[in-house]
Write a protein that binds this DNA or RNA. Structure first.
Length: 427
RNA sequence: GAGACCAUGGCGAAAAGGCGAACGCGGCGGAUUGUGACUCCGUUAGUACCAGUUCGAGUCUGGUUGGUCUCCCCA
């Protein structure tokens, strides 16, 4: 039975694409106000970029990448996240030479090879922003604020911000030793997952859902932060407080990508199956250099749009955003039918949305089609009207009808619509 | 990568192994209507795929492909 879409992908169909446009528009308008400008980078990059940027030992690179060899025998990978590509473009296009810092945003598909579940797909979409060229903690706070505002302006409730500082690589190395000293003695009492996590990523053990009570006395990374990290983190919190952005300090927050330094944060919400993280980000001060550029600091975020949409749905915030047609032309008879193309063109040139029947349907079915198109007006054309050079214009809901000169159809509809809107504004 | 559950028209939804696979919505045609809306009549189209068990499979078994969900991890 034909072809099926690849596993873990989705067709976004009319009726749903309008909601996507609404969400994207919200993101773009927010970026306009925060002065982030759009960048569009390729959806595939050299595999090495992600290995270097995201980190060789991350789950993403180890087992989730869509990697293929192109015909020139180069290893390419569909982007699993947005930051590496943006940073590559920043370096390659020498944006560090610009006098101001670089504030970029993107909206687009990302790819990770995972088993799909609620809110997780192999092709998913992210809205992300990146600010490169400043280590000002006020910028960290601004990035967090933008993401928070995104959810708020969409009307979502119950979105919280988890905040942590993961320090610098040096700080993490020290903390890792402290943590291992705490964990290794109790290794045998831990769950299977954690026992294997101790080797790969001990910081993540503290996130374990099974053994939380055992970790109450675990060392906190906050206590391991050096002077610089502490000062930076304090200022981020201060800015958030002053901006009225609420957050939960979560010293166990760890991100899945290696490039984060200092600030790390996640947006969380309930309502999407087992998943509660809907977006996240942080500062990445070593990444630009890692990718081969100047040692420029950066901070950014990535928000999952599928998860945003699911959350909108679970909170009953799924407006019908299709405005419907202004006019549906109903032709009665062959001669009238011949006059439709010119009429449609007149209407569309005048800025109206207009539709007709193309399936040779009977009158009754044409009116039903007009309803499906949620047309405001039906323009009904019969042979006798045609002979008089007129067409009858009928309000689909009011049923009111009046004859209009064919050449004045668009104008008449514009007039009616503006009257209608005036009425709505008064009431 | 591991596991659980599921798969019937365009959509929803029945059928305890047994007539030609209900019913509803939708679509199309017709009656009625001054050229739609209510009502009535007619009609349309389906057991995901491949094997097997059986006299007989939508129903049981195995496999495949998808979907949903969970673990892992993340967006």
């Amino acid at each position: 039975m034909g072809f099926q879409k690849p596993p873990g992908t989705q067709d976004i169909l009319p009726g749903n694409s309008e909601l996507w446009q609404f969400v994207e528009k919200t993101a773009r308008d927010l970026c306009r106000r925060y002065r982030f400008n759009e960048i569009r980078t390729p959806i595939f990059e050299a595999t090495e970029l992600f290995k270097r940027g995201v980190g060789e030992t991350t789950d993403i690179v180890e087992k989730e990448m869509y990697t293929f060899e192109d015909r020139g025998k180069r290893s390419m990978t569909l982007r699993p996240e947005g930051t590496a590509g943006v940073v590559r473009a920043y370096v390659e296009n020498k944006l560090f030479g610009e006098p101001d810092l670089t504030k970029l945003y993107y909206i687009g598909p990302m790819f990770r090879y995972e088993r799909a579940q609620a809110g997780r797909y192999r092709q998913f979409h992210q809205f992300g922003i990146e600010a490169i060229g400043s280590s000002d903690p006020a910028l960290d706070a601004e990035v967090i604020a933008l993401g928070y505002s995104f959810y708020r302006e969409l009307g979502l409730t119950g979105v919280t911000v988890d905040l942590n500082s993961v320090g610098t690589p040096a700080v993490r190395a020290v903390f890792r030793e402290k943590l291992l000293a705490f964990l290794l003695p109790m290794k045998d009492s831990l769950c299977k997952d954690c026992q294997s996590r101790i080797e790969r990523n001990p910081l993540r053990v503290l996130d374990c859902k099974v053994d939380q009570d055992k970790f109450t006395n675990a060392p906190s990374i906050i206590d391991s932060l050096d002077e610089e990290c502490t000062v930076h983190f304090a200022r981020v919190k201060e800015c958030l407080d002053e901006m009225d952005i609420p957050y939960n300090l979560n010293s166990r927050l760890v991100r899945g990508l290696d490039y984060y330094t200092h600030t790390a944060f996640e947006y969380k919400a309930q309502g999407i199956g087992a998943i509660d993280t809907i977006g996240g980000g942080g500062r990445y001060n070593g990444l630009v250099a890692e990718v081969g550029g100047d040692d420029q600091p950066g901070v950014g975020l990535g928000l999952g749009l599928e998860r945003t949409l699911l959350l909108l749905e679970s909170q009953g915030l799924k407006p019908n955003l299709d405005n419907g047609a202004d006019v549906y032309i109903v032709a009665l008879g062959e001669r009238a039918e011949k006059a439709i193309p010119a009429l449609l063109q007149q209407l569309r040139n005048a800025g109206l949305s207009a539709e007709r029947d193309y399936l040779g349907r009977k009158t009754k079915a044409q009116f039903k089609a007009a309803e499906r198109n949620r047309a405001r007006f039906a323009a009904v054309l019969g042979d006798d009207e045609l002979d008089r050079g007129e067409i009858s214009l009928r309000g689909m809901t009011s049923g009111e009808q009046q004859a209009v000169k064919l050449e004045n159809l668009a104008e008449a509809i514009h007039t009616f619509i503006s009257i209608e809107e005036k009425g709505n504004n008064n009431s």
